[in-house]
């Protein structure tokens, strides 16, 4: 277990290092940043989100895709430089057809509900 403490690269076994409280604090702060960024992007405003699907305001697409692009370059850049262990990063498992059907259902709900 003592080797956990010197384990660089990330991701870090925060729970093993600082216990549950430390782990939850970190995720709480990340969540805070997430909520904050969504709000400044206009994601708390349903007309703005729905406008995406009437092609008048592509904010949803721009925010989401630029977030993915920036995070992707950072994740794989860090992995290439040896700062992040991609094999330990959680990758959503693929259930192809349930994912597609669920996505279609969500899309419909998005237009009706507006979020």
């Amino acid at each position: 277990m003592e080797h956990l403490f010197v384990s660089f690269p990330g991701p870090f076994p925060i729970q093993a290092m600082y216990g549950k409280i430390g782990f939850y604090t970190v995720t709480l702060l990340i969540g805070f940043g997430f909520g904050y960024m969504l709000e400044i992007g206009g994601f708390a405003k349903s007309e703005k989100l729905a406008a995406q699907f009437y092609l008048t305001d592509m904010t949803v697409f721009k925010v989401m895709f630029s977030a993915i692009v920036v995070a992707m370059v950072l994740v794989f850049g860090a992995a290439a430089l040896g700062g992040l262990d991609y094999n330990r990063v959680f990758v959503n498992e693929t259930y192809l057809w349930p994912g597609i059907v669920g996505g279609l259902i969500m899309g419909v709900g998005f237009v009706i509900g507006g979020y």
Partner: peptide, 22 residues
Amino acid sequence: DFWNSSYMGRYTLMDWLHLPTG
């Protein structure tokens, strides 16, 4: 049955397209 179908595990675009990550 459907919900657990077409399971491919950790399946990335790299595995699918057989291209280097970069």
